[in-house]
Design a protein around this nucleic acid. Sequence first.
RNA 1: GGGGGGUUGGGGUAGCCUGGCAUCCUGCCGGCUUUGGGAGCCGGUGACCCGAGUUCGAAUCUCGGACCCCCCA
Length: 473
Amino acid sequence: MALENRKTENFSEWYLEVVKKAELMDYSPVQGCMIIRPRAYFVWEKIQGFLNQKFAEDGVQNAYFPLFIPQSFLEKEAEHFRGFSPEVAWVTMGGNEALGEKLALRPTSETVMYDAYSRWVSSHRDLPLKINQWCNIIRWDTKALKPFLRTREFLWQEGHTVHATREEADVEVRTVLNSYKAVCEELLAMPVVQGLKSEAEKFPGAEYTTAVETLMPDGKALQAGTSHQLGQNFAKIFGVEFKTADGGKKLAWQTSWGASTRLIGGMVMLHSDDKGLVLPPKVAPLQVVFVPIYKTEEDRGLTLKACSRVAKKLSCSWLVDDSDRTPGWKFNEWELKGVPVRVEIGLKDLAKQSVTIARRDTGEKEEVTEEKAHQFIAKLLEKIQENLFNKAKKFLDENTREVQKFAEFKRVIEEEKGFIKAGWCGNAQCEEAVKEETGATIRVIPFEEDETPRKCVYCDRPAKNAPLFARSY
RNA sequence: GGGGGGUUGGGGUAGCCUGGCAUCCUGCCGGCUUUGGGAGCCGGUGACCCGAGUUCGAAUCUCGGACCCCCCA
């Protein structure tokens, strides 16, 4: 066993051990901040690549806005400010001089961006305006800090669009949410549920918030990305207006949306096991590792040559590990680091003109002729990616339970965890009461609604919809 | 917000109650040796979270702080 903690016994400690030993992160001297190490940053760059392509297809351009936001800007939208003020970090000094106005380290960039937008948008010809930025964000959380999932500084992208009509903004919200679903499911093999947030859970200042939500192995939900319809709230305050074709003047409709490095944490939790990290092949810095096994110097040459013969035909990333470790050591090490496929080539294999191929996700080993090895590996990488997703999807489905009665709700939250699908009257008081008594919140009201008539799980009145409830990160 | 546990070489630890040369495993460096699931031998390297106090003397006792983790709301 490579790890001291087991996933099923001490999930939290296990997770910390994985992210540290697999060299994904390290701590920093400042509480709540962490170093994102190269193997994790590689995953982030894959996420960036994937999303940038989706954004580009949607006509979104990348840009960069400043880290500092004047206090007066943040305070312009009251609800927005109330939502973020408890966790804003402030700069009050510049060198030895006290600043005339405090500067916030951006907890999100709506205000600073829309101030610029108000100058950039004046005609219907300027619309739609779609800008995204990749940047760091500061939110001074005080508790439940966890690497990748909740840190005081994190990396994300935030997109901010301006539209002429509500309908166009609605479409934008959904388009981006689909991109988030795609990056989670296609790249990270992390199945998600798409839906609407409740009023209590929506983004401060938004008209409504949509989200992709996923489930972690410990039964807690994880919000993987959000996409907000801001309506005209911010446009009104920041003066984002445009002249219409017929000479009139209208307030613009806006959206904002974001996904962060927390995706990496979710992916790690979801797929990894007691041997360490398990990476979906599509985001693995190293997809195949070759382990030559030999006794004599002559054998060493032969096995190395065989490794190269196969490796050269691969179109994915690979490494021949010819360090002077024992094979067993290498097996454990590369499993800990999450390399999806391992190829072992020793004398036994050479004699049969075959290679031994081990997959990280299931641990299965298979003998394949050297001739066909590269094709086998290419296919295996796809299979692993698919298997990780299917396994996770099965877990998500099996841990989504429908309940009718509140007593049953409480029991499931305590004993089985996971998502609970239950009727809700739409009343915030019931939502709050459920949260008070169980710790579970409405994670998402799924878009895919069935027509089953239900009663509110708390008050028994007719239900308006059937949200997924869960305790969450 | 509440409660609890913890911090000793790079990682994991013993020592703390009862103050007096800091233990073991692992890693790392060098050498020999070794290769189908974390091999072996020899040599070397490397630590008491920070600050104040008590004391002849503090990893150990007292006070304060920082950081990490867990559980509950």
